Simulated scan of single mutants.
Amino acid sequence: MLQSPAPSNRDRKRRWQREPIVLVGLMGVGKSTVGKRLASRLGLPFVDADNEIEDAAGMSIAEIFARYGEPYFRDGERRVIQRLIDGRPKVIATGGGAFINDATRALILSDALAIWLDADIDVLVDRVRRRDTRPLLRGKDPATVLRELAAIRNPLYAEAHLRVASNNAPHEATVRAILQAIDYGAA
């Protein structure tokens, strides 16, 4: 019996042409901002999973956390992401904890191209201090929380198909790095 050869690295990178691209990473890494710009460059629709969750719930993520707690939020997040990964090419920005859920991570890894946007903790702290709407940071030191989250989440983010740095450069530099990583110029 003949077996088809394993997909080449080039084929894996070009999944964006037929499946969603899902951006994962810690809060403040730029998933939404980079995602919008990436989608524009690729001519694909952009979807922010957090916005979809808020629309479905009829309230903000902070309100969901306050009223129902994190486990309730994560279950809704899983269902929304499952709906968004429909086999059609698009760029999806997820919340920082979405990829931590085993079922969500398995779905993303099998049916999308997962790209981990990674940044140094100091860069993330600077970025998240600009917004006070993040439920996991309420009343806490952002540097401490981000270090704790990185210790838990980074090994799981590392399962993503690609890893791209999103440090103290303009977001457009991150977009260019993603385009290079997915072999966009050779498409």
Rank of each mutant, 00 (worst) to 15 (best):
R74C: 05
E54K: 01
I121H: 10
T94A: 01
T104E: 12
F73H: 06
D118R: 12
Q82R: 14
G30W: 00
E54C: 09
D75L: 14
V80T: 01
R74W: 00
N51E: 15
G69T: 11
L107W: 13
E63V: 14
V123W: 07
K90P: 02
E70M: 07
V91I: 06
S110T: 15
V125Q: 03
I121G: 07
D86R: 04
P45W: 08
S110V: 14
V125G: 07
A56G: 08
A106N: 12
L113K: 11
A57Q: 13
R78Q: 10
L117C: 08
R41E: 10
W116A: 13
Y72C: 14
Y72R: 15
D118S: 14
S60G: 15
E54T: 09
F73A: 12
Q82V: 02
F65T: 08
K90M: 11
A119K: 09
A112K: 08
A66Q: 14
K31V: 02
I108S: 09
A66D: 15
A119G: 04
G95I: 01
L107D: 13
A112P: 12
I115C: 11
A66Y: 05
R83P: 00
N101Q: 13
V34I: 08
D50W: 05
G97H: 04
P89A: 08
Y72V: 15
P45G: 06
A112G: 11
A103C: 09
Y68I: 13
T104V: 12
A56F: 15
D118G: 06
E52N: 05
D118L: 06
V34S: 03
L38V: 06
R37V: 03
R88G: 06
I64M: 10
G87I: 10
L117A: 05
N101F: 04
E77V: 03
L42A: 05
G76I: 13
I108G: 12
I53A: 06
L109P: 13
R83I: 04
K90A: 03
A98F: 12
P71W: 02
D111M: 14
T104G: 07
K31D: 01
W116E: 11
Y72G: 06
E63H: 12
K36N: 09
L107C: 09
Q82C: 08
L38E: 03
K31F: 00
S110E: 15
F65K: 05
T104L: 10
G96H: 00
A57W: 11
T94F: 01
D102V: 13
P45F: 11
L124H: 06
M59I: 11
W116M: 12
S110P: 13
P45V: 11
A114G: 09
G96W: 00
P45K: 03
D118Y: 05
A39Y: 03
A119C: 04
G69K: 08
R41V: 05
E63D: 15
V47P: 02
R78C: 02
V125N: 03
I61A: 04
I64G: 12
I61Y: 01
F65E: 11
L42Y: 05
D86W: 10
S32Q: 02
A39Q: 05
S40C: 08
G96E: 04
L109Q: 14
W116N: 11
E52G: 05
P71S: 10
F65P: 03
L38W: 00
V125R: 06
F99P: 02
R67F: 10
T33M: 01
S110Y: 09
A112Q: 11
I92Q: 01
T33Y: 00
G97E: 06
W116D: 13
L117M: 03
